[in-house]
Nucleic acid binder design. Structure first.
Lengths: 203, 203, 203, 203
DNA sequence: GGCTAAGCGAGACGGTACGTCTAGTCTTGGG
DNA sequence: CCCAAGACTAGACGTACCGTCTCGCTTAGCC
């Protein structure tokens, strides 16, 4: 599960010698991190604060993660999980519209705050940036791309369309509005966006 | 010139009592800030570093700006200026395509780095966020909107199109790619994006 | 006043630019250090504890002293002062006996604790060791030596006696008993020691 | 052999159930401790360093000794051993002078370093202090006292002399010079000290 | 040969303090 | 009132060891 962000340990979990790491610590740290983000914002999530709140020693945290950003990254991903965005039996248009609305809702809430903070912090931390890229951005893009490819195959959209660009057009505005505050991520907005993008993709 | 970001002074510049502020200090601080961004990245631009590099006292910097982000914000805006994005005698499509390419080029260079960093830092600093919004995002959006409105009037695009959404579709991907690194901000990308958006806006 | 131990500053106190160091900080830190030694022993005198107790920031302490031992060293010396051990108009034997008793009394109290701790800590810290040597041990030895030289000149002791050795015989047992706990530093002990040493120094 | 310092085990070595303790561990730990003292000084002798150097687990060390000082104490005593200081058939003066010279030589070398460090650490650790007292200081004092008593009986020194004080005068300067660095522990010094003390003890 | 008990290496754990860093504020003397 | 210099409080950083605790495995004596 842990790629990039978490400190790797040499051997496989089961055969490693010594006292095994307590999973309570992982849980306590990650949920405290999320609590602190909610309560006081990203900048309040210091290792010291997590240690104080949980009773976990700083050393135990640093044994697992290289810095605070990595903790939050993991906490966030453990929360949002990695379920598929699209159901295989759903129609192209219905599925896409549903997913966009779900995403908008999620971005309007706490997830949006987390995405915003992690994306921002990424600009200053290369490790976090690549973790965010590999574990958040790309998996979602891939799923979207797959959905689009299937749609194209089934004739729901033009075959010669540049899908990468289409995905940018569709998803970039979510991040843009999230960060810029130029307008709400309402369902009306999502529908307008959806319609206008589909306008250009009709076969 | 300074709105939001810079510390306001009570009276007008000319009539204030006491020793007038040296304009050298402003210049030195802002150009040092930009130099430091180029040389070592945003995180290296600390007030202490600027003070050390320029010989200007920290006090003198804090007298003018509330924090380091504000310094960089001002330095950035002083650099990119506020010239109009579109020429009044240019055609809608030609003008838009030219502007997009210019913007892409700018984002590929140092300006991109600065936008990225300021946008990121904005997430953690409300003052900076509103400065960025008021002095960077909105003026440019307004100019684009004006250009689109004129285009619609002249019949270059559909009259019933949602221009806010169109602008999101067109510009959001710039920021997306800038931050996410999912692909280059090449001219090919810009053209593809432009074509696909126009596809949906044709009358 | 500060030799070796305290962090040196380049220019003379009066002409140095910038905000002058607050003498309150020095006072507060040193007296807190002594309080902590009394209350909880040398090992409890941590920089963190001093900072917490006084409200002085750690940085302000580290600006003045390189480590906790140096703080205590200075605090100790500020307390014991540098008054002369012998009065010039006193007879050799009377003066010496009086000084030995005074010293024994001092060693039986808090000063003894401090000497013991500083001497011990010196074994692990070369800077502290040389500070202790230069600012405690040697000045006192010099004063004693001077007293012995005057005594020899006045015929109170043998002219050919090795005074360095005599001083060792007289003072080393103070430190020995202080550390080893082989017996009390009582007046009886002091007198016995004095008599026996003088036995060997009689002209 | 182990008094005070080493952790006691309930039953006698031979009949205790379970796997017997490996003597290799004792050896490895103690010699590593001495090596580390030689190589990098007392402060470098951390339990972690010993464990790392020897491959012995920290648990195995703490099973035997309560803390690092106890380890070094035992290592030291195992090294210097407990042979008698004086030969029964030696004359009082010759024997004493020989022993003093031997001791000076030992103090000039690594033993001196160890004594210094253990004595210093004793100031902060009551257990270590009493171990040092019981297993180093007192046995040697007793042997010296015995030698002096025999000397007094044989008429080599005054019968009414305070032997405790005499021993302090003779041995305290060794520790004093060892710690204070006020002069070398040379044979010349030893002889001068010896002569002067004997001056006062002549019958 | 299996059982019980302790030793052993490994490494996780809660702590404490370290000395460093940067932020933003305050206080000098001098212009 | 400005300016340079630098002291000041505040608080997080990441590190080093401490001494304790769990693991799985090993090594003995005893039934």
């Amino acid at each position: 599960m842990w790629i990039q962000t978490r400190v790797d340990v040499a051997m496989s979990e089961s055969t490693r010698p010594g006292r095994p790491r307590s999973t309570d610590v992982d849980q306590a740290v990650m949920s405290a991190a999320l609590d602190l983000v909610s309560a006081s914002g990203f900048r309040a999530v210091t290792i010291e604060a997590i240690a104080a709140k949980t009773g976990v020693a700083k050393t135990s945290i640093y044994r697992r993660w290289p810095n605070r950003a990595a903790v939050i990254m993991d906490a966030f991903l453990a929360r949002v999980g990695t379920q598929p965005l699209f159901a295989p039996d759903e129609g192209f248009l219905e599925g896409l519209r549903r997913q966009l609305r779900t995403m908008a809702k999620s971005f309007r809430g706490e997830d949006g705050e987390l995405v915003k903070a992690l994306l921002a912090e990424s600009q200053f931390d290369p490790d976090l940036a690549s973790a965010f890229h590999d574990r958040w951005t790309m998996p979602r893009r891939e799923m979207a791309l797959e959905h689009f490819r299937a749609g194209a195959e089934r004739g729901a959209i033009r075959r010669d369309a540049d899908l990468e660009v289409a995905i940018d057009m569709l998803y970039a505005p979510f991040y843009y509005r999230l960060q810029m505050g130029t307008g709400p991520l309402s369902n009306a907005f999502v529908d307008g966006l959806f319609d206008q993008v589909m306008q250009g993709l009709r076969p």
